Amino acid sequence: MSETMTDYTGLFRLEGKRAALIGAGGIGREAALALSAHGAEVTCLDKNPATAKSTAAEAGGHARELDITNAEAVAQAAEALGDIDVLVLTAATNVRKRILDYTPVEFDRVVALNLKATFTVLQAFGRQMVQRGQGSIIVFSSVRGFVVEPGQAVYAATKAGAIQLVKTAAAEFGEAGVRVNAIAPGVVETPLTNQIKENPDWHNAYAKKSALARWAQPSELAGAVVYLASDAATYVTGSTLMVDGGWTAIDGRYTPPN
């Protein structure tokens, strides 16, 4: 008795899928465009309504203002959007300071968005998906969830925490058919990294840290989003997909002279 042949030609297509993209600038913009290009109907959500509208217009989708640090607003958005097949969360913030210089207000601000709001989004949209018995949730973490440097304590802690939230959600939602994964970028040319880019020495040091010896463009993260959203990843859950140019694969770089 022969096995049923899989049609691989449409494995990455997303026709008929409804996607919600939270954090519509930078990487989020590229993710929205990629999801739309593969056939998904995209709703862009962002604290800045202009950003949401701009990306939605480019992606041929819908826009909605949303502050994910407001749990009630997140619950209302999940309810209003209804049957979402794919959820992508890219929103994050960072305050680069050493532990001894951090203020309680700064700590609370980073944790509120990067960790607490991630939990809130997983809870609200995960509830809808579990009830339907299907869905893919994609949360953006970072290489800082694995490796650190001075000045990254709180950001790194929240990104490591996000990975553990993803794993737990995958374990809890899996029996209902809902997949939950993380993407961990390396250094990407986005507004969040402006502080680094403004210092040439710092910028070049980061570039040389990866195996590819360069920074990533936001568009280079979009393929990972499409993969995890699509039927190409139906048996992938609880995972963290590294899109870091080999940053976490190597321990420094030294190229000896010929």
Rank of each mutant, 00 (worst) to 15 (best):
S2G: 13
T6R: 15
D7C: 06
D7W: 06
Y8L: 11
Y8Q: 02
L11N: 04
F12N: 02
G16A: 13
A19T: 10
A19N: 09
A20H: 04
A24D: 05
A24R: 07
A24S: 14
G26D: 05
G26E: 05
R29I: 00
E30H: 03
E30M: 00
A32S: 08
A32R: 00
L33P: 02
H38P: 03
A40R: 03
E41W: 08
V42E: 05
P49L: 06
A52P: 13
A52G: 11
K53H: 12
E58W: 05
A59K: 06
G60L: 08
G60E: 01
H62R: 15
H62F: 10
A73M: 08
V74L: 10
Q76R: 15
A77M: 08
A78V: 05
E79S: 11
A80W: 09
G82I: 03
I84S: 12
V88W: 05
L89A: 07
T90L: 08
A92Y: 11
T93R: 13
I99T: 09
L100S: 08
D101L: 01
Y102L: 05
V105S: 05
E106K: 05
V111D: 04
A112E: 07
L115R: 06
A117P: 02
F119K: 10
F119H: 15
V121A: 10
A124S: 15
F125I: 04
R127Q: 14
R127P: 00
Q131Y: 02
G133M: 05
G135M: 02
S136D: 00
V139G: 01
F140Q: 12
F140C: 11
F140Y: 12
V143L: 03
V143F: 04
G145Q: 01
G145N: 05
F146N: 06
F146Q: 13
V148R: 07
V148Q: 09
E149N: 10
Q152M: 09
A153V: 05
A153C: 10
V154Y: 04
Y155W: 07
A156D: 04
K159S: 05
K159E: 08
G161K: 12
I163W: 06
L165Q: 12
K167Y: 02
T168H: 08
T168N: 14
A170W: 05
A171N: 13
F173T: 06
A176F: 10
G177P: 03
G177C: 00
R179L: 00
A184R: 01
V187C: 11
E189F: 14
T193D: 08
T193P: 01
I196Q: 11
K197W: 10
P200R: 09
P200N: 04
H203T: 10
A205L: 13
A205V: 10
K208C: 03
A211W: 00
A211P: 00
L212M: 08
P218M: 10
S219W: 04
S219K: 14
E220H: 12
E220V: 11
G223C: 10
G223N: 08
V225M: 01
V225P: 02
V225L: 03
D231C: 04
A233M: 04
V236M: 12
S239P: 06
V243C: 13
W247F: 14
T248G: 08
A249M: 14
I250P: 07
D251V: 11
G252F: 13
R253H: 14
P256R: 02
